[in-house]
Write a protein that binds this DNA or RNA. Structure first.
Length: 439
RNA sequence: GGGGGCGUAGUUCAGCUGGUUAGAACGCCGGCCUGUCACGCCGGAGGUCGCGAGUUCGAUCCUCGUCGCUCCCGCCA
């Protein structure tokens, strides 16, 4: 007999079915027993009158919640049943894998355990439909992104995560032993995705892991996370990159709203807003002026950048004055950007760069890249970098590299915003942080 | 790395300016219950109060140290 998913059972009234899933609740009464079973599509009640099958009734009495079971029975309409107005009369039961009791925590209790406890037992935590739902949303979001890339002729790449040399900022690199040498885990595909431009790939994307050796203890940082990267050739400036990104986000959000908008609203109490184009653009100079007028002074040690509080205030300002959730904050000072960001010809202290802020959070950093070998080399030296470890990278620009730019986009931070969750750990399949390497 | 907050039953929490057998809800175990659906009723088990030291006649409570968790800042996606 083939398995029937719980969501399909309504089409099998008065038919025999096989259901496979987890025991969520057992209501074991003297004359009649009820089992509520869950699979990834829903819940269904099974019923057994003890007098009809004493042996089976005994098996039901011995069930434990969260055991993995196969159940066979006949679907019958029953308006009394609150769970959909029908139920399944139990004919047979097989325990595939019993759950020992007590469980580490009550999966469907009135209150959730602390996040840390849930992460210790992530596989149980993810049995909860609301948590499973996060990954359905993630799948659709990535699908939306891919649809748009594919329609625009982008190529997908998978760059290596093992690197032979320190690249941009050595401080945040994980070091590891590599056959007697030292290797590093990539903190970004930055250098390798630019190679695709030198290789003539024209437009590329990558969705993959990145590693940051920062001891960051916040709700929005992890030491390993999924980065979404894009790089585009033959651009005129970072404006072209921004206008790509806003269309791309609009497309992905619109698919997400269509597929899951209602369910997200029900489950997470937040509306998916498909953003209008163009997104507001504000230069860093303007942003600081705006915040000053509101009485907020960015800390002087930020060298012309905003702190998280400033970013939250700016988002609030844009929401109130432009009616928009997103804002491109652009033209950052050279001091706070890496050596490969291109600078303005007529304003050498300003880079052709941007961040994308959404709901108070940085979700993107992007820029036009410096593609001129001599200028790039000069900027690297200026930033105090040694050329030798990055010579392989500098070589990309020695033999004909088109002007290009791109961005890195934080998938988990975006999911947080989409689902109104307050911690990246919630939306990360298995979180990795300074104090967590298990499970 | 700097700062704040929190560690009490399996889970979430309460515990009075320091006082005798440390409580509740849910979960778990046993019994009862003809249709439950947050099932209900009766009973039970379960705690080195994170750990160590100090103050005190007496510490879950006050002090110090330590470990763990959490949030903010720094760093960034």
């Amino acid at each position: 007999m083939r398995r029937t998913l719980i969501v399909e059972l309504k089409n099998f009234i008065n038919k025999d079915v096989k259901v496979q899933g987890w025991v969520q609740t057992i209501r074991d009464q003297k004359e009649v027993q009820f089992i509520v079973v869950r699979d990834h599509t829903g819940l269904i009640q099974f019923v057994l009158e003890r007098s009809k099958n004493a042996k089976l009734a005994e098996e039901v009495s011995n069930l434990t919640t969260e055991s993995a079971v196969t159940l066979i029975g006949r679907v019958v309409e029953n308006p009394i049943v609150k769970l959909g107005g029908f139920e399944v009369q139990l004919h047979d039961l097989r325990v595939e894998s019993s759950a020992s009791l007590p469980l580490p925590f009550d999966l469907f209790g009135r209150v959730q355990p602390e996040l840390d406890k849930r992460l210790d037992w992530r596989f149980l935590d993810l049995r909860q439909p609301n948590n499973f739902f996060i990954f359905r949303v993630q799948t659709t979001l990535e699908m939306g992104m891919r649809e748009y890339w594919y329609s625009q002729g982008f190529i997908e790449i998978h760059s290596p995560k093992l690197m032979g040399s320190e690249s941009e900022s050595r401080a945040e690199l994980f070091k590891l032993e590599y056959f007697g040498k030292t290797a590093y885990l990539a903190q970004s595909p930055q250098l390798y995705k630019q190679m695709a431009m030198a290789a003539g790939f024209d437009k590329i994307f990558e969705i993959g892991p990145v590693f940051r050796a920062n001891p960051s203890f916040t709700s929005r940082h992890d030491t390993e996370f999924t980065s979404v990267d894009v790089e585009i050739s033959w651009i005129d400036s970072h404006e072209d990159v921004m206008s790509f990104e806003e269309k791309w986000i609009q497309h992905a959000f619109s698919l997400l709203k269509e597929r899951h908008g209602e369910e997200i609203f029900e489950k997470n109490d937040v509306e998916i807003k498909v953003p209008s184009i163009p997104f507001p653009r504000i230069t860093m100079k303007e942003a600081i002026e705006i915040l000053r007028k509101q009485g907020y002074m960015p800390p002087p040690d930020k060298k012309g950048d905003l702190d998280p509080q400033g970013e939250r205030l700016l988002c609030e300002y844009v929401k109130n004055n432009y009616g928009h959730e997103f804002v491109f904050l652009k033209d950052y000072p050279v001091a706070v950007r890496p050596f490969y960001h291109m600078r303005y010809e007529n304003d050498p202290l300003t880079t052709k760069s941007f961040d994308l802020l959404w709901k108070g959070l940085e979700i993107t950093t992007g820029a036009q890249r410096e593609h001129r070998y001599d200028v790039l080399t000069k900027q690297a030296l200026e930033k105090g970098l040694r050329l030798e470890p990055i010579q392989f990278y500098l070589d990309f620009f020695k033999y004909g590299c088109p002007p290009h730019g791109g961005f890195g986009f934080g998938l988990t931070r975006t999911l947080m915003g989409l689902l109104n969750l307050k911690n990246v750990r919630e939306v990360t399949y298995l979180y990795r942080g300074p104090n967590r390497l298990y499970p």
